[in-house]
Amino acid sequence: MLEDIYTELIAEHSRATENRRQLPNATVKERGHNPSCGDDITLEMEISDGVIKDAAFIGQGCAISQASTDMMIELLRGKKVDDAKKLAELFINMIKGNITDDDALEPLDEAAALKNIANMPARVKCATLAWHTFLNAKDLELKP
């Protein structure tokens, strides 16, 4: 059970540093946090022509929240905002346990590795923090 959550892949993503930075040309900046857990991230994105050109984050929190944020950034970078929103909804539905079919989850790529969090109610918020933060971000549609 625990091994299904704290996989090597998730441990690596939780400690990865490439996506931990600020973007000089960010058009979107959104902070999200879990008061109960202390996970706290600020997501930055550079969006132009409806495409996420670059994304990065700064913040701190548990391995699950940090790995999930890192994975989301890698998944969404280069995607159209509309497609990115669909992916975020798919991810949240996976964590809620609404979608379990592996084929349906394929678009999530590595982020599908967090599927088992669906069985850990206490950690659901950690896994979904980045994705909710993205969906909550204002100015997603803003044209520079």
Binding site: Y6, C62, A63, I64, M120, R123, C126
Partner: peptide, 10 residues
Amino acid sequence: EVHPHDVATI
């Protein structure tokens, strides 16, 4: 190097 919430889960 381990966040308290991960410690608590383990």
